[in-house]
Design a binder for these strands. Sequence first.
DNA 1: GTGGTCTAGACCACA
DNA 2: GTGGTCTAGACCACG
Lengths: 131, 131, 131, 131
Amino acid sequence: MIITIDLYNSTPAYLQITDAVREAIALGSLQAGDKLPPIRETAVNTRVNRNTVSRAYLELEHQGLVQARQGSGFFVTEDGAEQEKLSRRESVKAKIGELLAEASLTDITAEELLKLVENEANDFEKEGKSK
Amino acid sequence: MIITIDLYNSTPAYLQITDAVREAIALGSLQAGDKLPPIRETAVNTRVNRNTVSRAYLELEHQGLVQARQGSGFFVTEDGAEQEKLSRRESVKAKIGELLAEASLTDITAEELLKLVENEANDFEKEGKSK
Amino acid sequence: MIITIDLYNSTPAYLQITDAVREAIALGSLQAGDKLPPIRETAVNTRVNRNTVSRAYLELEHQGLVQARQGSGFFVTEDGAEQEKLSRRESVKAKIGELLAEASLTDITAEELLKLVENEANDFEKEGKSK
Amino acid sequence: MIITIDLYNSTPAYLQITDAVREAIALGSLQAGDKLPPIRETAVNTRVNRNTVSRAYLELEHQGLVQARQGSGFFVTEDGAEQEKLSRRESVKAKIGELLAEASLTDITAEELLKLVENEANDFEKEGKSK
DNA sequence: GTGGTCTAGACCACA
DNA sequence: GTGGTCTAGACCACG
């Protein structure tokens, strides 16, 4: 699992880390029982303070996605994976809402919007899978 | 032009104001050459301090959407209006990209996604027009 | 004498007017005894409030460059022209000071700077006089 | 980096600060990646309110010269340093243009002007180095 | 009346 | 410790 952080991004570093972990779980590259990269390692890789990584992991623990085992690290919980995939579906719906709100401020019609999504989706399937 | 502030919204008040103005420009209710409501007026209407409104207008000025004239107010710039409408279309495309990225992390298929968008879009048109 | 005002310029409108009049005097297009364009006329031409033009003319009167004659307008004073040309020489020296200060922040050498001025001066003589 | 504010100078304090920082960048005493002195520190040193320094830094950020990192400070951007040095050269040329425009309103000849610049430049080099 | 600048002091989020 | 946001209130310059 590779985590990259943009220190100049307005979203705080610790949230960028939690997002990266969540994404990894959703994609399946981190599965139930898997161990997260150790705090120190992540800190070095992302050039972020250990406290910040620690905060991110604790955040994930609060949300029940991972669990700390004293002295051995953080592990993805059993229902963490499922939970994450479910929350993604809601996230998609939320994004659709945002999209439509944004579109309503333009002169784009509903039909036009659908075509745009369709085209991009086709592109995405081709490019996305080859990456 | 009506600007309302949601104090419980986590996005800072001054950004809520800039968004409202941008929206007004995108929708055409504020056009090139039009005068923004005076700082103090907006401050009273939104129940926000003058300085906060001032900061919002300053931000808009930095973005080239409006321009201050000492002693007479803020005015929408010539290309500000155009710029805003154009940038909205790009914003929509960016949002579509995010949407697809988000969707790719789930098991939602392209067809399924299109249906979701279609349904929401229909709802949106109905609701939007009844508002 | 043509006065043009940029309302969005940060230098206040009334100062833009005084500068334009001073320039006209320095250039000789306004000479001792000449009448300034009437306040109302200037106000219309520059799309500026009459009070603003009035303020500019009063400013010039305070500086002794022009004098009001009740009911007939503002006129360039006898020593106004001379005074203006003298003050230009000092203005040039001040500008030279600014130039050198600016140059000292770059890696431009004194010799290089002189050449730049020389070149521009040649260009200026050709272009400037043809305008 | 030392920033001093002249309260009797008519240019606003926050602009005096931005100028000082820009100068430091142009001179190389602040380089790409360097951290600006913290807002509170600069506030104490210049005897100016925190908010004023904050405004100055914000301005610099809008101009792309520096970037804020939540909780750690302001840093000079990669291209900010270059951009600044380049823009100085253009600024010098602009100043030369102004100088010539000003001079053309007087009876100063091109040769005379060059001598004036030459003399001042020599003085400047001596004074500058003795400071 | 309209914007521009500044202060003093407060509370919050992030590292 | 470092920046981000906000308030309240002040004084000034411009039109």
